[in-house]
Design a protein around this nucleic acid. Sequence first.
DNA 1: CTAGCCATAAACAACC
DNA 2: CGGTTGTTTATGGCTA
Length: 687
Amino acid sequence: MMVESASETIRSAPSGQNGVGSLSGQADGSSGGATGTTASGTGREVTTGADSNGEMSPAELLHFQQQQALQVARQFLLQQASGLSSPGNNDSKQSASAVQVPVSVAMMSPQMLTPQQMQQILSPPQLQALLQQQQALMLQQLQEYYKKQQEQLHLQLLTQQQAGKPQPKEALGNKQLAFQQQLLQMQQLQQQHLLNLQRQGLVSLQPNQASGPLQTLPQASPVSPTAAVCPTDLPQLWKGEGAPGQPAEDSVKQEGLDLTGTAATATSFAAPPKVSPPLSHHTLPNGQPTVLTSRRDSSSHEETPGSHPLYGHGECKWPGCETLCEDLGQFIKHLNTEHALDDRSTAQCRVQMQVVQQLEIQLAKESERLQAMMAHLHMRPSEPKPFSQPLNPVPGSSSFSKVTVSAADSFPDGLVHPPTSAAAPVTPLRPPGLGSASLHGGGPARRRSSDKFCSPISSELAQNHEFYKNADVRPPFTYASLIRQAILETPDRQLTLNEIYNWFTRMFAYFRRNTATWKNAVRHNLSLHKCFVRVENVKGAVWTVDEREYQKRRPPKMTGSPTLVKNMISGLSYGALNASYQAALAESSFPLLNSPGMLNPGSASSLLPLSHDDVGAPVEPLPSNGSSSPPRLSPPQYSHQVQVKEEPAEAEEDRQPGPPLGAPNPSASGPPEDRDLEEELPGEELS
DNA sequence: CTAGCCATAAACAACC
DNA sequence: CGGTTGTTTATGGCTA
């Protein structure tokens, strides 16, 4: 994939390297500006527990504990990552000059660095040592975490039993079983990790434990595949590790292998100009406060509480280092000298980031599964809400650039760099329903073919609203559909170009970067597609959508067409994100979120807190407005608006699906309300 | 192999 | 003059 992207990027290069390079636009994109961090997380907590009872059942309690544990883990990972990102950022300054390097590489944001690239950056032995270190470390930490969680669970279960709450024994038993399995899953996760490493020949641990025990998930047959899939996730990322042959890779490699040369290259992705202060600055303040807490957790047994996250057991824990340091002071010194801001450190950070991301992904998966399980057990409506804590300051429409990002994350270029770290926790979360819209191709989570036309976009969007908003994932929709969506979400169904831009950035973390690119694309689409009509308005020119036109060109394609999806995936970004995304796709086995329709209405609705109204849209089953299948284009149109608020619009929308435009598509001319459209239509229609 | 779609990049023109 | 908004054209990947 990376190769693909590379070639793609390069493709454009020939036309004018200079031009391209100077086009700051490129810089924009490459530097991966603002990102997930910003994300506004409309804390739209759709009934987390408000549903029914007010008291907390043991089950719920358990759930919370689980959640908490997961969050702790998440945060821990996050910290791990963020702690690393800073030094990496520092390095970027050096690479400023090396921007000429493979644009492709430069274009990648840190988190997008593929293992292959790592390889290029680091010498094999280095890499290996590094990885081993990392893995060992991570595993250790994970284990600790799991242990903890397990304890918690046990405790909880005990309490439950003692409390003797009016709980059907049977149910309890089920739960226990489920949780135990979940625990096993978690453990398996570790094992898988090990396996993968072994597979790569990176680690030589005994596989003894790696005999995957539970495919015996309680009920969900369709779910089980997940377990099977997991193991492939990591390799996905680390693949190519040992494969010497890969042609594409070779070609890339030729461009430079030694640290000196390539490392700089790799770093170039970052910001060009000056970067934050020296390493010392980061490592200390950065690591101390945050990491300390988690650290204490995991290493309480034998490490000095006040120690540096990278310092333990009297030695430097920097990947592949192991230098012995008598005390923290010495360690700090060592850190500043040996692991100062240089290409190598940067590269190593990346590797670490990858590791963290992978783990994050896994964690997210497991936690999702856990939720689904609990949901199934009626413990509570599962909240697909993936990201919970870290990010999500509400995106002030304008105060966007300011975003709240840790000092370490902000970049000199003024952009908020997608702090791999910060982004990491988010990205791994796969869009819950993603599979649905994007998997037409053929995942288990298939949709009725007719769905193709049915604007999966709005529902899709609604369901994964949060996800796209925070994760730096490219939405699987075409520009055209997105633009349309943006416009339709407006009360008067018209937007100025700038407003459209804003919508994009507001709704998708992905579009907070590469601005030059997608804005151009948006404009291009607006001009190109007949379905977009420009209207002179009081306040200038606004764009509207000609539904009929849009529908016309609808059939052949479809939002989330395989092609598109594929493209998007490949373009997704070379990194964990991509991995997670793909994993998600591959893992279409997640029935709970992918296809609500597969569940009984009851549970389904409870499982999709985002907006039950959406459920109707994507899931055909709801004949809500009569002719809902093929012609109905409008409903989804925007019934979603997860955000809620534009009541008037909604009203309008509702109207549409119904009699006016809803049923007969081609003939139906927009609802009478569309004065704007009407204006346009005459001319446009004929064309 | 071709036709359509789609994404990107980029040149240009008209405005502000 | 520089940025924004719109149009167009070119190119290449994909899928049916």
